[in-house]
Write a protein that binds this DNA or RNA. Structure first.
Lengths: 211, 211
DNA sequence: GTCTATATAGGGATAGAC
DNA sequence: GTCTATCCCTATATAGAC
């Protein structure tokens, strides 16, 4: 594996584990057993590392958000789809942990991240509209507008909320369950607008996927 | 006004405007036209300033969260009550902007903030339960559990979400409206579980308070 | 590509005079 | 209570040898 890629990989792991602000370029070099000078041969500065990681994240997130835009999804589609979104956030969670801080240092990142948020809201609204038209959901346009925003907020901050709320140290065990919990929380936003059969389906899914 | 209080006041303002990580003790002293040494006469370190500000915040927030625990509130009670919570968060928003970062440096703060989150969830659940018993709301215990958590997430992160999402610089104008918007978003979580009259009341309130 | 050595800058914090 | 001067430390980043 090329040094450049190892730097990215190591940075991502350290950022996720300890938070981006606390991890210096020296820490990254130390962890890899290379010299700080070597790191700066591969990257102009720390910001370039972060930007590269963001590009990876953005690519994956766009792919994830694209999937359901074609057809009206059923409940299980939505569950799996949301899980993909949460997995993505989890993989690059350092970003969400210090969102304001990181975005305030890089205008391009700010713009791109904003675009992702917009897309989240719009995708959520589009899906809801599709469900209404398919007769699976009952909601006014105003209700859908508010709902779509709430979906985006929960999908964006759920993992933050959980890690702040959790008292124990971040155990690997609770992680995967937290993702499923996030999916459940988002779908429980939608549930009250659904017809009975769809609601029953959701109940089954949560029994199946939630440990 | 005593220097000590001016330090707290100035710190709060600078933290809110630029983010706590970017504001050094020197910045604070500069802004006040006092020397860094003087600042350190009044506070052992930056962390002590933050802790004091947190105490102020915690006191106000506890007062705000206490109010509705006595009796079942009507819709307008809830609107005003939520607005108080949002005002509080807004006043100490620097805290929410770099939550993980700040809490990771101070164990006591972490504990206390966690307590506030717990209380938010519990208060929300208690209110919902009261509404169900009063016959204004229809929801199962499982629905209430999920709903209470979603309420807490939106109430905690809505302002973050809005400021990240907004493209323009933080204008003073949009602020107060954002608070009302947050209240609306939270109440729109509850709305689908309410009986028709209560829902209609909410619609009226949002027309009244939302510009 | 990688290393060692080092420059530069800034933040946190203290000592001691006034 | 307040100031000036200063120390220590750490982080980013570069220069130049190998």
């Amino acid at each position: 594996m090329k040094t450049r890629d190892r730097i990215l990989q190591t940075s991502l792991q350290l950022f996720n584990d300890y938070g981006e602000p606390r991890i210096t370029t020296n820490h990254i070099a130390d962890e890899m057993d290379i010299s700080p000078g070597n790191l700066y041969y591969h990257f102009r500065n720390k910001d370039e590392i972060i930007s590269l990681l963001f590009q990876q994240f953005e690519r994956q997130m766009n792919a994830a958000l694209q999937a359901p835009e074609r057809r009206v999804p059923n409940m299980e589609d939505m569950w799996l789809y949301l899980h993909l979104v949460f997995e993505n956030i989890w993989e690059y969670r350092f970003f969400y942990r210090d969102l304001d801080n990181i975005l305030s240092r890089n205008k391009k990142l700010r713009t791109h991240f904003r675009r992702i948020l917009e897309r989240k809201v719009n995708t959520a609204a589009a899906i809801c509209k599709g469900l209404v038209e398919a007769g699976v959901m009952h909601a006014t346009p105003e209700e859908i507008a508010a709902l779509a925003q709430n979906i985006a907020v929960i999908a964006t901050y759920w993992l933050n909320f959980q890690s702040t709320r959790a008292s124990a140290a971040r155990s690997n065990d609770s992680d995967s369950n937290n993702l499923a919990l996030g999916v459940y929380q988002v779908l429980s936003l939608v549930a009250p607008f659904l017809i009975d059969e769809a609601r029953e389906l959701l109940r089954q899914l949560s029994r199946e996927y939630l440990t």
